[in-house]
Design a binder for these strands. Sequence first.
DNA 1: GGTACCTGGAC
DNA 2: TGTCCAGGTAC
Length: 263
Amino acid sequence: MNIYTKESLIEKLKEISAQGWIENGRHGNDGGIGNTLEDLLGIEENNLPIPNAAEWELKTQRLKTSSLTTLFHIEPSPRAMKFVPSILLPHYGWPHQRAGEKYPETERSFRMTIHGNGRSDRGFGVQIDNKERKVLISFDSSKVGERHSVWLEGVKKNIGLGEIDPQPYWGFDDLEHKAGTKLLNAFYVQAAVKRDKETKKEYYHYSKVLMLQRFDFSGFLKQLEAGNILIDFDARTGHNHGTKFRLRQNCLPDLYEKVTEII
DNA sequence: GGTACCTGGAC
DNA sequence: TGTCCAGGTAC
C-alpha cells in the first residue's frame, strides 16, 4: 500500500503515462482499465491514499468509448422496500437474454438507462420534484413501444399498468451527500486501448489526466434535469449490480468548479 | 450470505 | 443514444 501526497500522486501518474502501453492485470473484467491503474499505483479500490483521501476520487475511462461515466451507486428510497429486487425485477423485469444457457431458465433482467428528458421505450422516466426535493422514477404504460407489447402484458398481469406506487425516489439531500463525499475532487484519467490479436491481451496507455476540484451539486441537478445524467438500473435475478447515476461522455469536467490539465 | 456498493463495458 | 450487459468487494 503506497502513500502519496497530492503532488507525488501527480508525478506518479505522469510516470505511468510515460511508460506507454501497460498490460491489463485484470483479464475478463470490464473494470480492468481502472483496476489496472489502481494496481500500478499500489492502492486499494476506491481508497486514494493521500491526505484527505476521502475527498478525492480516481476515475478511469477509455479514450474512445461511447459508454457513460459512472458517478456513483445508490439504491432508491424507501430503502426498506428493496425496490429493485422485490418490485422492479419481479414485476417489471423480463427474461434474461441468456436464461436457460448461462443462467437458469427463470433468470430475469431489469437493466435500463433512463433520464429526465423523455421516456424509455418501456415507459420509464426520471422526474425532478423541486418542491419536495426528490428525484423520482416514473412508469407510464402509454409510452411503451410496440416491440415491448408482450412484456407490457406481463406487467399488467404482475402488478397493473398504473404509475409505480409508491414511486422509487432519491432525496436531494441523499444525492448531495453521496456526491459530496464521493466526488468532491477527482483525478480523471483517460487511456488509449489496444488488443493483441494473437494473445487477446489488452493494453492501456494512460495518456490524459485532468484534476477536477470542487463538485457542484446545483450543476449536477441541472444536468439531471437536462437528461445528461442518467439513472441506470442493473439487476438480474442472481446479481443486482446496483443502481447508478451516470454521465454522458466527457461531461465530467462540467460538474466541477476548477479543472486543471495534468497531462 | 444478501444487499449495496465498486470498477466498468458492446452494440 | 438508449438497451442491454460484465466481474468484483464491504459489511
